Simulated assay, not measured.
Amino acid sequence: MSWISDHLLALNGTLVLIAVFLLPALESSVFLGFVIPGESAVVIGGLTAYNHTNPLWLVLVAAIAGAIVGDSIGYAVGSRWGDALLNRIPHKLLKPAHIRQSKDLIARLGGRAVFAGRFAAALRALVPGLCGVSDMRYRTFAVWNMLGGAVWATAFTLIGYYAGASWHKVESYANTASWILVGVIAVGVGGLLYLKRRSEKRAAARFEGDGDGESEVESPEQQPTLGEHAAG
């Protein structure tokens, strides 16, 4: 994607801001994250802030807005046409394995999948639409979408800003770092869910044990009276 980055750098400041908004919006709105370089555009936006072509705050606003708007459109598209659209995309562009990974992520993490999926391009393109397909509540989706979009856009804008002249090297590592981060998040959340379920099972076992102990105690009606002892 370096040729796209080079073309973006040749644009004036206003057009770069438009690209910083538009490319992140397109990559997750219609399952195009595998061909639309949203991360590259945001990194380049940070670089233009470093070069004083654009104000840093304006690049951040454009990147965050593009990320959030794009995911929201992706959710709506998935809710309306998700399965039919996915079936029409050639497997060379969209691997079935990526669809399975996204569905597994949603099944394990719920709304947190929106945040985790934001940090890997293939998942970023699919997770919003698959959340719509799976009928996730939009309120839940929106909260995690805003959080994930803000963190992702801020992180990659600042990467471009602080990388400065070394942005090419940073850009080449960005996708790998994204997948590593997704793995760390998934493992961490999976571990927390496992500990929570284990704790719930222990609590249920203790409750059942207490219930069995109480059932062995005779009620006052079942205990023999003093008269019955005497009669015996």
Rank of each mutant, 00 (worst) to 15 (best):
N12M: 10
S2R: 14
S178H: 07
S5P: 02
M146F: 13
I185L: 11
L193G: 01
I159D: 00
W179N: 01
S79K: 15
S29A: 14
L181D: 01
G46A: 10
L8E: 08
W152M: 05
L60C: 14
A165T: 13
G188W: 00
P220N: 02
L11P: 12
G232N: 11
L11K: 09
N54Q: 12
A142N: 07
T14K: 14
Y75E: 05
I106G: 01
M146Y: 06
D6A: 14
G209W: 01
S102M: 03
G66K: 06
E218G: 00
G111E: 02
A19E: 04
G45Y: 14
T157F: 02
D104V: 06
P220Y: 01
V189L: 12
L109N: 14
A113W: 05
E228P: 02
G74R: 02
V30T: 12
A19F: 04
V77F: 14
D71P: 07
L56V: 13
V77S: 00
V30P: 08
L22V: 15
A177C: 03
A174H: 04
V127K: 07
G129E: 09
E27I: 08
G66N: 06
R198D: 10
M1C: 09
A231G: 00
D212S: 08
R198S: 12
L47C: 03
V35F: 10
I73V: 15
P24Y: 09
V77R: 04
L47F: 14
S72I: 06
A122D: 06
V184E: 07
A177G: 13
A62F: 12
A174Q: 09
L126A: 08
S219V: 05
P224T: 04
R197M: 00
V20F: 09
A49W: 05
P220Q: 03
G148K: 07
I185T: 02
A63I: 10
S166G: 12
R100C: 02
D104E: 14
V30D: 06
S102Y: 02
I44P: 07
F156R: 03
I180Y: 02
E200M: 13
G33Q: 10
L58W: 10
W167Q: 10
R88F: 02
I64R: 07
D210P: 00
G148F: 09
P90H: 08
A231H: 05
G132T: 02
K169A: 13
A19L: 06
K95V: 03
A155C: 06
A150E: 00
G232H: 04
C131V: 09
L181Q: 02
A41Q: 08
T176W: 09
F31A: 13
P96M: 06
F141I: 08
L94G: 08
A231L: 11
A113R: 03
G111P: 11
H91C: 04
I185Y: 01
T14Q: 15
A65S: 14
A76H: 05
R112M: 14
R124N: 04
A19R: 10
T140S: 13
R137G: 10
V69P: 05
V42K: 06
I89H: 04
W81S: 04
A25E: 03
A65G: 08
R139A: 12
N175T: 15
L123S: 09
G82F: 01
V30K: 07
F156M: 11
A204T: 01
F119N: 05
G13C: 11
L56P: 10
N87M: 04
T154Q: 03
